[in-house]
Design a protein around this nucleic acid. Sequence first.
DNA 1: TGATATAGTACAATAACGGTGCTATATTGA
DNA 2: TCAATATAGCACCGTTATTGTACTATATCA
Lengths: 144, 144
Amino acid sequence: MLAVTKKTEYALVAMAHLAALGNEQVASAREIAGLFGISQSLLMNVLKQLASAGYVESTRGSRGGYRLSRLPEEINLADLVTAIEGPLRQSDCILGSMGDHQCSGSAMASCPVADPVHRVQRKLRDFLKNVTLAEIAQGPALHS
Amino acid sequence: MLAVTKKTEYALVAMAHLAALGNEQVASAREIAGLFGISQSLLMNVLKQLASAGYVESTRGSRGGYRLSRLPEEINLADLVTAIEGPLRQSDCILGSMGDHQCSGSAMASCPVADPVHRVQRKLRDFLKNVTLAEIAQGPALHS
DNA sequence: TGATATAGTACAATAACGGTGCTATATTGA
DNA sequence: TCAATATAGCACCGTTATTGTACTATATCA
């Protein structure tokens, strides 16, 4: 209901933790889950997704764990959410059914039709694109 | 998955149409549904919700229909989505499980803990608070 | 070799979403 | 008064998404 899912929340918590750790240390799923009191197996699933999406690097075996593979400043919410939850739905143009216009998927990005649904989707996406892990993880003072 | 639901989309389309009509005319659910080629019964449900939430005024019977009961500039997405989809989930503080801090629901609004989940929820809510129906309905040129 | 830890996959319970149908009530106009 | 139109308020259901668990395989360290 227009909210980030639990999986994404777990991803944010884990990545914020990894960001705080810096690039020299690794943290295992067990450590992070224990630290924040969240489900270890679900966190493992999320970290697997993050790894295959290229957000974190993993080392297996004893003393293994995860570390961020990008700078927190270079990670934005839109891409992260897409990696975890799947592609942001950009529903077919509601005007498509009127017969005079069709746009869906990637074509919608350049859709000239100013219908309200497009506008909201675009605004939401632009907003998410401009929120970085850096400001989520430790960021400056909370402004408003 | 971090997107507005179909019901909210229908609400946006309907309200944008009502905004364009102005305050003197009314439009029925059947008219709007036909105009945009969307499901009439679902739109009726949405309009009922909008009416009971105070967004639109209804007149029954023949020649009846809906009209906006507020100015488009005074309607923001956060409240609208809340009215249609239910309260925005503000999940319990993820740090609550650590035992040293508890905050949930309305208390979270003033939660001093800067955990990533809170920050994202707050940012998202602030964003939605600042998007009005006016800029969605006809708004100025699409910026960015 | 054993303990640790990730990789990959499959599965299941619950909740949310999307959509439909029915009955009751109010208004207009013939 | 009667028929047509239109909203009000329910209740319901199938599909999809979310949330969470489990199992097996593989890699690494001591």
